[in-house]
Simulated assay, not measured.
Amino acid sequence: MNRFVTRQAAIQDLDHLAELFDQYRIFYGQVSDKEAVREFVWSRFEHNESIFFLTIHSQTGEAAGFSQMYPSFSSVSMQRIWILNDLFVDERFRGNQVGGQLLDAAKEYAILTRAKRIELATAHTNISAQGLYEKKGYVVSAAFLNYSLNL
């Protein structure tokens, strides 16, 4: 039996998601701000702006990891694209295929919603995540140069 269950998260999972999201931000060098994190996550639910997946340890009920996807669209193909913007596994649960389960759940959801693709980005230094993404079939895109404008 799998020790971890991954499912689409609901507003009732806000406490679990907020805790993991705060850890995720700390991982990327941000200062902990649990109140702001809770408000940010709650707002995504309130405005129906993203899809969260949550992995829970089946015996202890502890939150092990989460991912978040935002919708986008390909105008040329007239299809949905999902941006897998966030994926985080609590370090206590790394090495247990939690990240893989979160990626699988995202893929299943993208297929169900008839999306063209899932896009994601990670830090150049996040070698373990890159290995997982490649293992799950993600490839580095050479088709486009990605630019950003910080405001």
Rank of each mutant, 00 (worst) to 15 (best):
A64N: 03
F52I: 07
V98W: 09
A105G: 04
I111V: 15
N85W: 05
A36F: 06
V140M: 07
T122G: 02
Y147E: 10
L84M: 10
S67D: 00
Q68W: 04
A63S: 14
E46P: 00
H47R: 08
P71C: 06
S67C: 10
Q59C: 06
L145Q: 06
I56S: 09
L149F: 15
V5N: 05
P71F: 10
E91T: 12
I51V: 15
E108R: 15
L120T: 09
Y70V: 07
F40H: 06
Q8P: 10
A9R: 09
W42F: 13
L112Y: 13
G99T: 02
G131V: 05
R117M: 06
S75M: 12
F21K: 05
D22I: 01
S32C: 01
A36S: 13
L149C: 15
L103G: 00
Y24Q: 02
H16Q: 10
E108C: 08
S75F: 13
A63M: 11
V140I: 14
L103S: 00
S67F: 10
T6Y: 10
A115G: 15
F52G: 09
H16E: 03
L84H: 00
G95S: 03
I56A: 12
A143T: 12
E39P: 00
R114E: 15
K107R: 08
L120E: 00
A129I: 09
R25P: 02
H47I: 03
M1V: 06
R3H: 11
R92I: 04
S141F: 02
T113W: 08
L145D: 04
A110V: 02
A115V: 05
E39Q: 05
I11H: 11
E19C: 06
A18G: 11
A64D: 02
S58V: 07
I118K: 07
D15Q: 11
Q23N: 01
N150S: 08
G95Q: 05
I111H: 11
